[in-house]
């Protein structure tokens, strides 16, 4: 079944035709060309597709596009364009919080969601907030350091 929906993505409004089975991830990547959000497992187990939906961190592979009608979506492209978390992005570069980079968008969205709620999280809080994101390259050490550094730079 086909649905007509409206999505506000990274500040832009889109009117879209979607099928019932299309996920938000499908629509972002295929219809809007926002490929920064990654497809790692398709069942909510790797975190690579993490985005913000109405200011909440969600796994976009587990959200049906039709359910998101009217919603505000922020992806890594929007996060980068806004500049609001440039210090977090810089910290990921400085501390080698990425190697292959495939999981990076998901980590950034999750880390940004944490820092917005809690400007000075301790290490245990950072770990808990990022426990749903898998990275096979970095061993997480650079990611943890990056988020700690970003939290100190913030204020």
């Amino acid at each position: 079944m086909r649905h007509e929906i409206t999505l506000h993505v990274n500040g832009h409004e889109h009117r879209l035709q979607v099928e019932s089975h299309h996920t938000l991830l499908d629509v972002l990547r295929r219809q809007l060309g926002l490929t920064g959000t990654k497809h790692g497992c398709d069942c909510g187990e790797c975190g690579a597709c993490s985005i913000w939906l109405n200011d909440r961190l969600v796994l976009s592979c587990l959200v049906l596009a039709a359910e998101a009608d009217g919603a505000h979506v922020l992806t890594v492209e929007g996060l980068a364009a806004s500049g609001e978390f440039a210090h977090l992005q810089e910290a990921f570069i400085e501390h080698h919080g990425m190697q292959c980079g495939f999981c990076t968008a998901g980590f950034l969205m999750a880390a940004a969601a944490l820092l917005r709620e809690n400007a000075r999280p301790d290490a245990a809080t950072i770990r808990a907030a990022l426990a749903g994101n898998l990275c096979r390259c970095t061993g997480y050490h650079g990611i943890l350091r990056a988020v700690q550094t970003a939290s100190r730079m913030r204020r």
């Binding site: 990547r29 926002l34 490929t35 920064g36 959000t37 990654k38 497809h39 992806t75 890594v76 492209e77 980068a80 992005q89 990921f92 570069i93 400085e94 080698h96 990425m98 980079g101 495939f102 990076t104 968008a105 950034l108």
Partner: peptide
């Protein structure tokens, strides 16, 4: 020496095969 592609990676700008 900083990774040359790191800026693209933190902006979702690297195109992998499926992208």
């Amino acid at each position: 020496f900083p990774r040359i592609e790191a800026g693209l990676k933190v902006a979702g700008g690297i195109r992998y095969l499926d992208d």
